[in-house]
Amino acid sequence: MDSKEAKDSLGKNPRGVLFVLSFLILFFVVLELLCPLLGFFDPLFPFLVWEVRLPRVLSAFLAGSALGLSGAVLQAYFRNPLAEPSILGVSSMASLGAVLALYTGLYALFPLSLPLLAMGFAFLLPLVFLAFAKSFSKAAPLILVGIAVSSFVGALISLLLNFMEKNYALLDIIFWMFGSFADHTYQELGLVLPFWLLGIVLLLRQGPDLDLLSFGVDTAITMGTSLKKVWAPMVSGVALAVGSTVALTGVVGFIGLVTPHVLRLWVGERPRNLLWPSALGGGLLALVSDGVVRFLPTTGEVKVGVITALIGAPFLVYLVKKTKHAVFS
């Protein structure tokens, strides 16, 4: 009897949340697959669903879930509400790889070179971080290092763009850097999927240790975990999940930052309870943003990174004002 009441006081039932999120995801997937821009009986309809829309929906979900889950894990690890996947420099390094593929013209010869090069670069920086893990015992310096690296890589990319002689790849690069879920093949998705899966599994397993880190580094150590213990699986997980999907879709901002904050209002703040919902919630957010992109009446398609930032930024400001939480005050 007591234990039932104790269980009730452990916050919202995460299973109920997962059920609602899954239902919404399914709803949007079906909506985006079947929404009849062409008639159902048009001979092109099956082709449109299987070859155009399904890969698009899948890549949106893969990227969104990787970003949402990574955001939740990183915020819990650094105990900082500003932490998000870009602080490990994964996205900026992936951009550098992609820019190189476009810059050198490799992409024109061999299209898979773009995701491959972007992924390779995305994994590079975390490898460096892993090698120097011993010299980091506190969380705050790491965030600063991440910001420094991201700015440095951003500057490198700008420099490359300046040196570019021909402008034909310039637009490609700029478009890529705003992120898009459109025009991906099953071959590309197959390339990304194993890395994504491994990353997601690694990240989902960190729940109990992240819970303990809420009590501060000293108490966490005396209760059996440490920043060092979580560092390697976390960095690898983020690099694999985000690095592989960013390589495919380009930089999609704000999902990693906003998703955990939205879900905290719903499932409470316990880090472990946030992991699964953030994975599903991030996927859902990406699907919805992509839906908005598709139905906006513009001449050229708006990039999804534009939509996530346009919706995400004001929403975050609203959250900060509305939530009377110590984290924000």
Binding site: S9, A76, L212, T222, G268, R270, P271
Partner: peptide, 23 residues
Amino acid sequence: RGYLTADPLCFWNLTVAEVLDVA
């Protein structure tokens, strides 16, 4: 061994039951 710091804290806003469940 167990250790209690002079100023125990919980960064995220967990419920009392959640803290006891975690710790």
